[in-house]
Design a binder for these strands. Structure first.
Length: 851
RNA sequence: GCCCGCUUGGUGGAACAGGUAGACACGACGGACUUAAAAUCCGUUGGCUUUGCGGCCUUGCCGGUUCGAGUCCGGCAGCGGGCACCA
């Protein structure tokens, strides 16, 4: 028994030494670069376990790469603009800047106690004018290169508060504070032309080999390329035509109505003389702007009184509707309905009693049953004139060809992706550097006047945008004519801030947004780590930014993130007392596997759910670090689940990690006795130690490379279990004494990226090493020495395991077969059976097939 | 509603390219140490069955491909993420 491990002293000590020595500073000039990055956090004020998980994952990779000889860039910063700061301002009467800076200070202290290998000299905060100054420059360059433009966009409008609401502030169609029914309002706003890059953003996904497939699929679906056609439906009795977009020109003979979006210009025109339609359009505006609200609303529409002519059947007239399920943003803002073969059209047709004409047979030629639901599968065209008998694919081609001949349509490729609206009617964001002049129009703020800084003296007493009702801020002289003009009072979407921060880290002190040469040498990010919830928006916007910046001449790269790891959520059980009230985890005691309150009454343990305030199941990282130390928390959070899955936090699991930390500490003392040179001869046990050690090095390295940290830890535990078992034997075996010490030293290096403080402390105070583990090169595994000479083969009869064989590597197949047949259990299973064949899979299995 | 995932013992998970399901842990149970408890250490632990040996069943559910399926294919169910102004 040696001295117990004192993490309270040890952890801050090593954090201080690493900082003092500058162990984690990145070097712009050194070769072999590696950029490891965790997603920029929002400074909410309190660190949560999701952060701890994220940073622990990144730290293992960063420390491992450093030990592998890489020059690692591992920076940190804050996504410091955003809505919560304004909410806090209203609630607590605290200025957003003060609130944000306080949060950053307290979170920074918490993060420092995690011992993550960050280069803090590169820290940024997006709310800092020295950051957003460059962002404003980028915006102006986007404007110059036709990547930013103004158009009308739709926002959620709270008519009582006279304020624009975010989607999350709209609950069941009502404003979260006022409770008033939210309406849609059109405002002139700034947009970025992400759609200029639709094709490239889609095609380049294929090259992102180190991204999870599911993220690539999600982006692919989001961009949503579809090949279809524009089709014109002439309006009966008028000269205009309704142009629709469709992906199914093959089903045109099944058309039974056409639908315009409520926002369609023609809908508006017709509504002037149609009060019912006008009323309906107003009702549609009561729907929020979210896709979910639109999709789940009951399909409803109004007949315009007009009929349109089917392109292929000039004599057939179908009604023209305006309906809530057609979007102005997508395609042409108009569709034709083929209810027999489309779910949404089907629902609409049923509701308004419109014709449902089947135009597709099943692949076997029979008619689909469309009495209850539409048929959306493959088949052959029917009831379709010149298309009859064709497959869907053939009919699409043929229909488009005919439309072109008739001058009533043309093939067209459509993307679901929309341009990115970046204007926000809020205070706590980056000001858009634009001035509106009655004489000169839209005038960019001259570069010499950047940054346009947020005014500090704002009030949140009035609803709406504080910049808008600030007494003087928006008044400015026009840079062009000098007359009095107005500043843009909208600020930028915070996704704008986080779409280029990873570039700023490369040269955080640059006078320009970033230094081209240095940035190109660090970029792309080798490994990006963050939550799956960012799979589409943040990651897609960042990919767009790289392309847009390239177009503006900033750099010559297209993809920001070469490797991507998306981590799962951190969950925890929920607890309720006998009355069903939620309880906090710290008020629960476990006895014999059952849960009780501290007062002894029984507790119902609910399912594990994402840690959140509303579920009362948050575990505070600070408290855990106080009680167990950060290495224990890191070990537990890395060992229990693979990173991409949800993680279940449990006090018991944490305790297991704590025990292991202490076992390693005491094992270190048991094997500390030193033999300076490897003995000439190794005993059998010493050879086993050597072999398992090499196996472990290889397995741990491979598992870290693949981000299977839980498996890496399992291998480390296997090795330490083995070493522990041999400790009593070492006194009588000098070569084993050497082997145990040698092996354990390697084990300490292998676990160092996971529990870095423990590793340094063993290295220094038990092994009396002079250098630091962080400066030691990663151990090298020898494949030869890790080889087994014997192996175990499974023997099956008809696919069922009947026994095993231990054979030496390279034994002849015939010999293996005959050994297999000699197994008693095999003989028994083969009684009264004829052998049909024997399958031998080298080094794996023998399967005897018999009947 | 639309898009994308996930589902293996009491629990978290392992099984690399279809080849011995349950590595490594947690919990539980039994034992050692202790006046006792905690801590620590040792052993057992998927289920059913048999006095041992063994046998049968088992990867959310139903079906298929294969000598062989947790892994591949089709269908279903449950849970979760995203849906463009939360970040």
């Amino acid at each position: 028994m040696g001295t117990p491990y004192n993490f309270r002293e040890t952890e801050p000590k090593w954090q201080g030494i690493w900082e003092e020595k500058g162990s984690f500073l990145a070097n712009d000039d050194a070769p072999k670069k590696c950029y490891i990055l965790e997603m920029l956090p929002y400074p909410s004020g309190r660190l949560h376990m999701g952060h701890v998980r994220n940073y622990a994952l990144g730290d293992v990779v960063a420390r491992y790469k450093r030990a592998m000889g890489y020059n690692v860039l591992h920076p940190f910063g804050w996504d410091a603009f955003g809505l919560p700061a304004e909410n806090a301002a209203i609630k607590n009467k605290m200025h957003p800047a003060v609130w944000t800076h306080q949060n950053i200070a307290s979170m920074k202290a918490q993060i420092k106690s995690l011992g993550i290998s960050y280069d803090w000299t590169r820290e940024i905060a997006t709310c800092d004018p020295s950051y957003y100054k460059h962002q404003q420059k980028i915006f102006l360059d986007f404007l110059k290169h036709d990547l930013a433009y103004r158009k009308e966009g739709v926002v959620n409008w709270d008519p009582v508060e006279q304020t624009v609401l975010a989607n999350e502030q709209v609950i069941d169609g009502k404003g979260w504070r006022s409770g008033a029914t939210v309406t849609r309002k059109r405002l002139s706003q700034w947009f970025l032309k992400i759609t200029d890059f639709s094709e490239d953003l889609l095609a380049s996904l294929e090259g992102l080999k180190r991204w999870p497939d599911k993220v690539r699929t999600m982006q692919e679906k989001w961009i949503g390329k579809s090949v279809g056609a524009h089709v014109d439906f002439p309006i009966e009795g008028r000269s205009e035509k309704i142009r629709v977009f469709t992906t199914r020109p093959d089903t045109l003979f099944g058309a039974s109505f056409c639908v315009l979006a409520p926002d369609h210009p023609f809908s508006k025109e017709l509504s002037e003389s149609n009060p019912a339609l006008k009323k309906f359009i107003l009702e549609c505006q009561a729907l929020g702007t979210s896709q979910k609200a639109i999709d789940t609303a009951e399909k409803a529409g109004v007949f315009t009184g007009l009929k349109v002519r089917c392109p292929f059947e000039p004599d057939r007239l179908i009604p023209l509707y305006v309906a809530n399920y057609v979007l102005m943003d997508y395609g042409t803002g108009a569709i034709y309905g083929c209810p027999a073969h489309d779910q949404r059209d089907y629902e609409f047709a049923k509701k308004y009693d419109l014709l449902i004409i089947p135009v597709l047979s099943l692949p076997n030629g029979s008619l689909p049953d469309i009495s209850k639901e539409p048929y959306e599968g493959e088949g052959y065209l029917i009831n379709s004139g010149f298309l009859d008998g064709l497959t869907v694919h053939e009919a699409k081609k043929s229909a488009i060809q005919k439309l072109e001949e008739l001058h009533l349509g043309s093939p067209v490729t459509q993307f679901r992706l929309k341009d990115w609206g970046v204007s926000r009617q809020r205070y706590w964001g980056c000001p858009i550097p634009i001035i509106y002049c009655d004489f000169c129009g839209v005038v960019p703020v001259p570069e010499k006047d950047l940054p346009v800084v947020l005014p500090e003296d704002v009030s949140f007493d009035k609803p709406g945008n504080p910049l808008e009702h600030h007494p003087t801020w928006k008044q400015v002289d026009c840079p062009s004519c000098g007359k009095l003009a107005r500043r843009e009072t909208d600020t930028l979407d915070t996704f704008f801030d986080s779409s280029w921060y990873f570039l700023r880290y490369c040269s955080p002190k640059a006078k320009t947004p970033f230094d081209k040469e240095v940035t190109e040498s660090w970029m792309p990010v080798d490994q990006y780590i963050g939550g799956v919830e960012h799979a589409v928006l943040h990651l897609l916007y960042s990919r767009f930014f790289m392309r847009a910046l390239k177009k503006c001449g900033y750099l010559n790269l297209k993809e920001p993130f070469e490797g991507l790891l998306t981590q799962g959520m951190v969950c925890h059980e929920t607890y309720k007392d006998s009355e069903g009230n939620l309880l906090y985890p710290e008020d629960i005691i476990f006895k014999q596997g059952k849960a009780f309150t501290t007062k002894g009454s029984p507790v119902t343990v609910g399912p594990s759910e994402k840690m959140s305030k509303s579920k009362n199941n948050i575990v505070d990282p600070d408290a855990i670090i106080q009680e167990y130390g950060v290495d224990t928390a890191r070990l537990f959070i890395l060992s229990d689940s693979p990173p991409e899955r949800d993680f279940d936090w449990s006090e018991a699991g944490l305790h297991g990690a704590w025990r292991y930390v202490n076992r390693l500490w005491s094992l270190a003392q048991d094997v500390a006795e030193f033999l300076p040179k490897k003995p000439e001869r190794l005993s059998e046990k010493a050879q086993e130690v050597e072999k398992l050690t090499h196996k472990t090095i290889l397995a741990v390295s491979q598992n870290i490379e693949r981000y299977h940290f839980n498996k890496a830890i399992a291998h480390i535990r296997e090795l330490s279990n083995f070493l522990e078992g041999l400790v009593p034997d070492q006194k009588s075996d000098a070569s084993l004494l050497w082997a145990l010490r040698w092996s354990f030293e390697i084990l300490v290096q292998l676990i160092a990226p996971i529990t870095p403080h423990l590793a340094e402390e063993i290295w220094h105070s038990i092994f009396k090493k002079t250098g630091l583990v962080v400066d030691a090169p990663w151990p090298e595994g020898d494949k030869e020495l890790a080889q087994d000479s014997l192996m175990v083969l499974a023997v099956q009869v008809n696919g069922k395991l009947r026994g095993t064989l231990e054979v030496s590597k390279g034994m002849e197949e015939e010999e293996i077969k005959s050994l297999a047949f000699e197994l008693e259990t095999v003989k028994l299973a083969l009684v009264d059976k004829n052998i049909k064949k024997v399958i031998v899979v080298p080094e794996r299995i023998i399967n005897i097939v018999a009947v």
